[in-house]
Amino acid sequence: MRADRVRLLAGMALALWLVLPLVPLAIWSVAHGWRFPDLLPVAWSFKAWSHAFSASSGVLHGLGQSMLIASVATALAILVGVPAGRALGLYRFRGKQLVLLLLVAPVLVPPIAIAPGLHGVFLQLGLTGGVPGVILAHLIPVIPYMTLVMAAVFGRFDTSHEAQARSLGARPWQVFAHVTLPAILPGLLTGALFAFLVSWSQYLLTLVIGGGRVQTLPLVLYGFATSGRNDLTGAIAILYILPGALVLALTARFLTGRAPGLAP
């Protein structure tokens, strides 16, 4: 009983820690005049929300751009990360440590340190100012996450199942679809979720490579936040958090093997 209660309290504390900062944002988004030291706004309004959803604010466009870029980056990361992770997880080869080091490098090196140089390279290649260039830039931090997750997944993978399936009459693509994929799916979803969110929360690389012409949601959000529109900032921030929370809720079952919630 006691342990249960402690666990429940700890869980609630953690939940509050994560949720509390969102509360003022949520209030801001529906406030019409909210000044210190008032505990609550003097009046309520959905003006910020209706403006956020109007075409002129650019929020919906930003949402679409973010969705497109993060989805394509994730798909490309899966295409690269699954075979690369397999090679890293299953085989010993010359230079493996170096490959691992290079993979971790983008995670260790702050984007701000590489952004100027990257911009120069992309400029020469004519990749600045467009969505393809931004996707390519996002892949720099996204692919390592995906690959490292898949390397861990394949590190625990037993290839004898694949050989057994082959001997039972499965063609190579059937082996992948019926044996390999089901085995790596939970890890693949974890990796994809990470990949999506890394791209989704990317600000600097989008700004530098997109040159302001690719307006993803964080760029739109930052624009409003710096111009003092607290109500719109609150609304966009909520929109910005939503996909991640949604994907997490949908995949939690795969990731942990149980439904979301505090109770087991």
């Binding site: 050989a163 057994q164 082959r166 001997s167 039972l168 009459g169 063609r171």
Partner: peptide, 11 residues
């Protein structure tokens, strides 16, 4: 190829 050999190996 293994899937058409008519040979089944039980690992």
């Amino acid at each position: 190829p293994p899937e058409r050999r008519g040979v089944v190996l039980v690992f």
